[in-house]
Simulated assay, not measured.
Amino acid sequence: MRILAAMSGGVDSAVAAARAVDAGHDVVGVHLALSRAGGTLRTGSRGCCTIEDAMDARRVADRLGIPFYVWDFSERFRDDVIDDFLSEYRAGRTPNPCMRCNERIKFAALLERALELGFDAVCTGHYATLREGPSGLELHRSSEEAKDQSYVLGVLTAEQLAHTYFPLGTTPSKALVRAEAEERGFAVAAKPDSYDICFIPDGDTRGYLAERVGAERGAIVDRSGAVVGDHDGAHAFTVGQRRGLRLGVPADDGKPRFVLEVRPVTNTVVVGPKEALATAEIAGSRYTWAGAAPDAPERAFACDVQIRAHADPVPAVAVVRDGELVVTPEAPLDGVAPGQTAVLYAGTRVLGQCTIDRTVSAVPVDA
């Protein structure tokens, strides 16, 4: 196959590209320049797609003897990931920019260009596996549960899965990948993993949002609507947050209060007891299936639901109703925020996902 290897400059994508070469594929490496600031530098483990990362990727490509290019996707990244991130916060939701990047950049924009240029598939260093199932290609968890990245790939469609290649999916551990990189002489063998939001390399999400979304003082209220404090900008709060609340009125029971809801239209933050974070139902109209859809999804079907990349899956029942994917977990979920992604599984198989638009609390307001 003709393989386009997406090379971030990290150890995973380096070894993935090397394995694609070893498998006899015709491989070309590409690094995506996602920042408009061409001189962006990496700070420790923070951020990715920096100028240093591009140079690291080039050195690996040179060692493998494959062609290498840097493609400028910064405008698409700004429109589809950064602007979406800001608009979601303005709407009072908590977005996952890594999901949007996978959905709209790595497996949409990049894959579209790869297919136009005659490539058969895009290769990445994600830890997930593809299997042939009775209804076609299926996306499954990797063999290493702790490193499994199938959650952030839950946005992929059947057409995209047909043109992806995950050489690391059956590798038991990240340590083995690093050891292999060292054996191959890759300088990135000991390079730390990136974390945090790549376009906020200093990790100051609150400051980033204040500068771009703006800060305006507003009220913090309890579930009854009584004012219990104030804030400098609702965008700085997320559901489940406890720290940073300026509450002038203590709770009747003296217990800590947590953010339950952010209302951007009125610039109001709603707080309440920890018990009120329990979520009995989630739903979203922006849903997709990873491969073949479940048989008759308008009838309730059993599944597991995962709401964060490193969260444990929870048994649930899902159904498509009135244009929404509605998920009812067997036990209430804790601290779910609109804007998060819910990924559905059947065992190790990824069924699909939805962006959460609304939640239903397991605790009535008058409780």
Results as ranks from 00 to 15, higher is better:
Leu139Asp: 10
Met99Trp: 05
Phe73Glu: 02
Phe166Glu: 11
Glu145Ile: 10
Ser74Lys: 04
Leu137His: 02
Gly133Gln: 07
Asn102Met: 01
Thr129Val: 15
His163Met: 08
Ser74Trp: 10
Ser87Val: 04
Leu156Arg: 08
Leu110Gly: 05
Ser142Val: 08
Gly136Cys: 09
Arg78Asn: 11
Ile105Phe: 07
Leu153His: 07
Tyr151Pro: 02
Gly92Leu: 05
Tyr127Met: 11
Trp71Asn: 01
Leu117Pro: 01
Pro67Ala: 12
Val152Gln: 10
Thr164Pro: 03
Phe107Val: 06
Ala108Leu: 11
Phe107Glu: 00
Thr129Cys: 15
Arg141Phe: 00
Asp120Trp: 07
Gln160Tyr: 06
Val155Glu: 10
Tyr127Cys: 05
Ser150Thr: 03
Pro97Asp: 02
Glu88Arg: 14
Gly154Met: 13
Glu144Pro: 00
Tyr89Trp: 14
Lys147Tyr: 04
Ile105Trp: 02
Leu153Ile: 07
Glu88Trp: 05
His126Glu: 11
Cys101Lys: 01
Ser150Arg: 06
Ala109Tyr: 00
Arg78Lys: 13
Glu144Lys: 01
Glu116Ala: 15
Asp148Ile: 02
His163Tyr: 05
Leu115Arg: 14
Tyr151Glu: 04
Arg100Leu: 10
Ile82Ser: 07
Val81Met: 12
Arg76Ile: 13
Ala162His: 07
Tyr165Thr: 00
Glu159Leu: 06
Asp148Trp: 03
Phe85Met: 04
Ile82Trp: 07
Pro67Tyr: 08
Arg90Pro: 12
Leu161Asn: 08
Ser143Tyr: 08
Lys147Ser: 15
Arg141Pro: 01
Arg93Ile: 01
Leu117Ile: 00
Thr94Arg: 09
Thr124Cys: 08
Phe77Trp: 05
Ser143His: 13
Lys106Pro: 05
Leu156Glu: 04
Asp80Cys: 11
Asp120Val: 03
Pro95Asn: 06
Phe77Asp: 14
Ser87Asn: 14
Cys101Phe: 00
Ala91Arg: 13
Ser135Ala: 15
Pro67Gly: 09
Pro97Glu: 03
Arg76Cys: 06
Pro134Asn: 11
Phe77Met: 09
Ala146Tyr: 02
Ala162Trp: 03
Ser150Pro: 02
Phe73His: 11
Ser87Lys: 14
Tyr127Gly: 05
Arg104His: 11
Arg131Glu: 15
Glu159Gly: 05
Ser87Pro: 00
His126Phe: 05
Glu144Thr: 12
Leu86Gly: 08
Leu139Lys: 05
Leu115Glu: 15
Asp148Glu: 08
Leu139Val: 09
Ile82Ala: 03
Ile82Arg: 10
Ala91Asn: 12
Gly92His: 07
Ala109Ile: 01
Gln160Met: 12
